[in-house]
Design a binder for these strands. Structure first.
Lengths: 214, 214
DNA sequence: ATAGAAAATCGTACGCGTACAAAATTTTTT
DNA sequence: AAAAAATTTTGTACGCGTACGATTTTCTAT
């Protein structure tokens, strides 16, 4: 089997692909998000514009690659400083998620507000959604809370409700920056607490320690 | 004052504008949403492509005009069959809002998931957001519920929370149609009930009549 | 009626994403 | 080593949104 040849090829291809991603990053840094153009990107790496399409099916895939990098950073950041108390850990994750959306609206938009042009088969598309590090970490926190008896209901239902709710707040603030949310960070906090209220067990008391800070 | 002349001019301009909107509607009906093109639209009404820009600042404005028509229909539909009981009326409005998003993803996306390119001044932009009929009707329902002592908290805060939460569910289902929401209508229902749970007064009991149907 | 101002309409051109097919290159087979 | 097959790269071209400036039409003031 020519596995060495095969893999070398793939590795080279992957290298060129990440070279393109790096160039895309640089381009965005220098000229802003809307300055990222297939033609400019190609020129920068010495390719013909159409050659980019050997590595990305379309422009959206480039944007997704950039956004996935950003989300990986989010996951790393959220992993640090994670409180031991399960409910506070959940809160922490939700807060980081909201902060990320505030600080990275372009990346947030490409992942969470843009229809996936390449839905492959239905199966793959569903996997992709579940592979978002932010969502995965949230699911784990929910699980821990359920085991601690702090939340009531189905794990998947709770997780889904929590992320779509926070997502609603984030995306609304991105789309309508002028709407009277008040301070955006504060509104995100409010939404998080209200959402948790809806899924908390009855006897849990109004607020745990984590809710007061920030 | 040449008010007759002035107004006649404006009226003519408005007529041409709505002729364009009508043509846009027809175009979308015939060729689908992505078939709506400035060039095609101009050709259809016998204009040069650039002439369209006398009536719309850019393509987005055309899309917004289409979407506003759709949202007006939503308001009309939601106005009918409105339950007398305030909380059920609120539920009704939220349901209609969710159903609208499900049935009109393109229009929903235009209004709620696309950054407004023409933010005019900040003031006008904020006004526009508050002029959405669906949101206005929701605000009224919230007000009625507050007067009836069914909800707790600030009117604006509650309204904002409710719409961003439902919006989160709708937009998530639009962006990730393959995610395991289960039945979309059912998930919307779940989110509505959970969101209401978070803002309901304590003694209101688990569910009113409206929650069981549907 | 006519000159001047204002507004509406249009022609041209740019950069964009990308479909398509030819060309160049690399890999596999003989 | 040579031929064939596969893959990568590129040239060309299309339709798109729209910036800019010229042109035509409409209104206003004399």
């Amino acid at each position: 089997m020519p596995i060495t040849v095969q893999t070398r090829r793939e590795r080279q291809k992957a290298e060129l692909r990440s070279e393109l991603v790096a160039a895309a990053h640089a381009l965005v840094k220098e000229e802003g998000y809307e300055g990222l153009t297939i033609r400019k990107l190609a020129k920068r790496v010495g390719y013909a514009p159409m050659s980019v399409y050997s590595y990305f099916a379309d422009k959206q895939e480039i944007l997704i690659a950039l956004a996935e990098d950003a989300f990986a950073q989010l996951a790393e950041r959220a992993g640090r400083n994670q409180p031991a108390e399960p409910l506070d850990a959940l809160r922490h994750g939700m807060r980081e998620f909201a902060a990320f959306g505030r600080e990275n609206p372009n990346e947030y938009r490409t992942i969470f507000m843009t229809p996936k042009a390449h839905e492959h088969d239905a199966e793959t598309a569903a996997e992709l959604e579940k592979n978002n590090p932010a969502l995965l970490s949230m699911r784990n926190c929910v699980l821990a809370c359920l085991e601690a008896g702090l939340l009531k209901g189905d794990e998947h239902a709770i997780t889904t409700f929590l992320w779509t709710t926070v997502h609603g707040a984030i995306s609304a603030m991105i789309t309508f920056p002028q709407y009277s949310f008040g301070d955006h960070k504060h509104y995100a906090e409010t939404v998080i607490e209200l959402a948790l209220t809806a899924v908390r067990t009855e006897g849990a008391g109004p607020l745990t320690a984590g809710a007061k800070s920030c």
